[in-house]
Write a protein that binds this DNA or RNA. Structure first.
Length: 581
RNA sequence: UGGGGCGUCGGCAAAUGGUAAGCCACGGGACUUUGGAUCCCGCAUGUGCAGGUUCGAAUCCUGCCGCCCCAGCCA
């Protein structure tokens, strides 16, 4: 948002660009704009818009579009409008409008006073529709949906005009006015553009531009019972707002001829907005379809739109993602016209890079294993200074209490260590971060031979974590003092899907077949540093050696809940994985 | 078998006729009080395929092949 992240050194791309002014990496849309500017097409102006339909929550794919549209406007000293494309009241809700505004703002973009609704233009659109009828470029059609489909032909068979095409302008105008007046039931008639039933482009075979929908509208209320179709409305919205570059996704490429037709036939002022299509974002191991996401929410497979496993902006936010990381990601993936699938590892990389720089470090033991220091005095408590962020000395240090009974991570102990395991095992010495070296002397088990406690000794000469004789344990462990730690819940998230691309994983399996049953693991009884007692929902931390965590709104006083945003890179896990084959 | 797009490393993606950037991932090494971070090194004798033009082709031409989108009164 406000702070410009001073990345350690210039970005490699910028270095490649070769100047201090760091020209952004280019892409075909920038080139189109540059050409327009060179030719003076829009008088050097750049006016874009982000036009969501309020029928769901925004996701990471929308973030790409938001960053593109608002980013381009910023770059070229232009403007970007937030415009709700609310032409279908049967699917739209105020809740979605609110969430979208919130998400765009959270991402760090500002539409100032340019918040628009397509529905605010309905009267003008209606008047223009009448003009089309008067010009003989539109007619009221009485066909049923099935009949429309039949007359339309197929991909390889041209369509044919229905009788209503010939009914005359006056009749159409009269009927259209009565449609608006509410004389007909839903679906009884439509207004259609009159173009070419034989066009190879099916979008030009007299597309429907108005339909009857007796439904209240979340923004326009009950003012209308006929609503314009996207294909008719969108070019007009753009024209009304003097949009110069109307950026949308690839599937609308086929619609561009109609987009231009509408503006041309209505003889709207030049220069007309230019529609430009780019490839939408696809991300591995997740879903990028509003329909499927809605299904997850409705089926209760996730707790809501903001479930931290969701690729929604609200889900990512709750998970602990930062707007900076998402914006960086959007820039790095580039903009092109080829269908692509971006590895979610890149998103995670951008996040780690951002969080590493700014997240406060803290020690938290997720799966506690009790450690008793046999040679440490009962009741003694020491406090150690622990750095808050090694990446940022200015973040200072904090005091962390240490005592005879501690907890360490259960994963950090093995009774019989595999090769290259450097952590605790009988007889081995390790460092407790910022505290002492300890050596495992004895393993205490319960009746079922579960390890329940480690008896260790500490070396008092290693206070602070370094030995006078210079010996250096190969492992440094995080820990908490049993009597001082705070109990917490941790929610560990993994990918939503078990496969990178459910559509490619095939064999006729539905995407739901690939939902990851391990996408959420809830851990209770975690022990965290007492300094976390004052943490507020949304606060982010690095739990040393484990990952980045974010305080969930489900937290209660004294009972914090942490979402694991992303793990740290874990080279031991890789070694272990390889050992397992 | 109509129309519209797109094919460059495992994944993104530059190169705009002058001899294949960068990032992620992956592999190796250095350093390390986070097996974190950081830093080094490696990673397309070749741009879907086949021809052609040219001193020179990922870029131009021809012909194939493959993938995506379109038959909502959704957007």
């Amino acid at each position: 948002m406000k702070e410009k992240k001073p990345r350690a050194g210039a970005s490699p791309r910028q270095e490649h660009a070769g100047s201090e002014t760091a020209a952004p990496p280019t892409h075909f849309i920038r080139e189109i704009i540059n050409e327009h500017n060179k030719a003076g097409k829009f008088g050097g102006k750049v006016a874009t818009r982000f036009p969501p339909e309020p029928n769901g929550y925004l996701h990471i794919g929308h973030a790409k579009s938001i960053c593109l549209n608002f980013g381009l406007a910023q770059e070229y000293g232009g403007t970007c409008n937030l415009r709700f494309d609310d032409t279908n009241p049967t699917k739209e809700e105020q809740e979605y409008i609110d969430s979208i505004e919130n998400d765009v703002r959270w991402l760090g973009f500002d539409w100032e006073d340019r918040l628009y609704f397509a529905s605010d233009y309905f009267e003008q659109m209606y008047l223009w529709a009448e003009k089309l009828i008067t010009k003989g470029k539109a007619y009221v059609c009485d066909c049923s949906p099935d009949e429309v489909r039949e007359w339309r032909g197929t991909l390889t068979k041209p369509g044919q005009p229905c009788v209503h095409r010939e009914r005359g302008r006056e009749a159409s105008l009269d009927l259209f006015r009565r449609m608006r007046a509410g004389e007909f039931p839903d679906g009884a008639r439509t207004l259609r553009a009159e173009i070419d039933m034989t066009s190879g482009n099916i979008n030009m075979r007299d597309p429907v531009i108005y339909r009857i929908l007796h439904a209240p509208h979340p923004h326009a209320g009950d003012a209308w019972c006929i609503y314009p179709m996207y294909d008719y409305a969108h070019p007009l919205e753009d024209a009304i707002e003097n949009i110069t570059h109307s950026i949308c996704t690839l599937e609308f490429e086929d619609h561009r001829p109609f987009y231009d037709w509408v503006i041309d036939e209505l003889e709207l002022p030049e220069p007309h907005p230019q529609q430009i299509e780019f490839a939408r974002l696809n991300l591995t191991h997740t879903l990028m379809s509003k329909r499927k996401l809605l299904e997850l929410v409705k089926a209760g497979l996730v707790i809501g739109w903001d479930d931290p496993r969701m690729p929604t902006i609200s889900g990512l936010r709750r998970r602990g993602y930062t707007p900076e990381a998402i914006r960086d990601f959007s820039e790095r993936i580039g903009v092109a016209k080829r269908d692509s699938m971006v590895d979610i590892a890149l998103l995670e990389h951008c996040l780690r890079e951002d969080l590493n720089r700014r997240a406060r470090r803290v020690m938290a033991v997720l799966r506690p294993l009790k450690v008793v220091l046999e040679n440490y005095r009962d009741g003694q408590v020491e406090e150690f200074d622990v750095p808050n962020n090694p990446e940022d000395p200015a973040a200072g240090t904090r005091k962390v209490p240490f005592s005879k009974v501690l907890y360490v991570e259960r994963d950090d102990f093995r009774e019989s260590p595999p090769p290259k395991f450097y952590r605790l095992y009988p007889g081995n010495e390790v460092r407790l971060r910022s505290a002492y070296f300890i050596t495992c002397k004895e393993v205490v088990k319960d009746a079922d031979s579960n390890v329940v406690e480690l008896r260790c000794t500490y070396d008092r000469s290693t206070r602070g974590g370094s030995a006078p004789d210079g010996r250096r344990p190969k492992a440094t462990l995080h820990w908490v003092s049993a009597n001082h730690a705070l109990e917490a819940e941790a929610r560990l998230y993994d990918h939503l899907l078990t496969v990178p691309d459910p559509d490619a994983a095939g064999e006729g399996k539905d995407w739901k077949w690939f939902l990851n049953p391990g996408s959420l693991e809830t851990l209770r009884g975690c022990r965290v540093e007492a300094t976390l007692a004052g943490a507020r929902p949304g606060d982010r931390f690095q739990f040393e050696r484990l990952g980045y965590f974010c305080v969930d709104p489900d937290s209660a006083a004294g009972k914090p809940v942490f979402n694991r945003t992303v793990t740290l890179r874990d080279s031991w896990a890789k070694i272990e994985q390889k050992q397992k084959g």
